[in-house]
Design a protein around this nucleic acid. Structure first.
Lengths: 104, 104
DNA sequence: CAGTTACGTAAGCGCCTGCTTACGGTAAGT
DNA sequence: ACTTACCGTAAGCAGGCGCTTACGTAACTG
């Protein structure tokens, strides 16, 4: 259940800000922290969470740590979402037509 | 930013359990609480959060409160996700071809 | 080697959150 | 009217989370 951690990671507003900044491309920690309403160490901690959730990747460029979005984690999350979406719609359709109790 | 609350709501594991149970169709509170590792009042509180996040709808059937997934909230969340996914992929492609700094 | 830049981590703290128990209110059955 | 079923809410509490400050480390510069 990788999407579990990913979902929890994206629940935090600050973490979403960081993640959305990463959407436009790779960034070092300092660049990410600049302009954000929290300190740089806080950003580091958030990046650690995002990394462990499989949402971002880390790369080294000298003294700088470059972070970028991990398409794999994002893909898993999206896959879970799509499946959920399909199931829910199917359930609605079944309700609209026959209407009745399901398995569960 | 409706998806903000929705994301926060789905971050909690118990809330996800409830939400996934709802995926198969409408359920009263008691049915939802049965089998879950928490008490029924806890489920009620979770349902309130899900409702305020636009993820579920409430309906009355006599003394029972029937809950079901709100396709609108789920759709908004999915839309945000899709957009994010597309942007991220585009960024990757741009990186792979030209490679360079972007606006930000 | 000394100084600066860039970053992660540890420690500590306030706040928010999820849980339980207890209670009140509405609907159905007799 | 009494009882039972079903549910939401209030109060209170333990635990987790995010933030800051302080510190240690690696890399680049001169």
């Amino acid at each position: 259940m990788a999407y579990s951690n990913a979902l929890a990671a994206l629940a935090d507003p600050t973490r979403r800000l960081i993640f959305e900044r990463l959407r436009k491309g790779p960034r070092p920690v300092g660049k990410l922290a600049a302009g954000l309403p929290v300190s740089r160490p806080a950003v580091s901690q958030h990046l650690k969470v995002l990394k462990e959730a499989g949402l971002v990747q880390e790369r080294r460029d000298g003294a700088r740590h470059i972070y970028q979005i991990d398409p794999k984690g994002l893909g898993q999350l999206r896959a879970w979402f799509d499946r959920f979406w399909d199931d829910a719609l199917e359930s609605f359709r079944a309700k609209a037509e026959g209407g009745g109790e399901n398995t569960g």
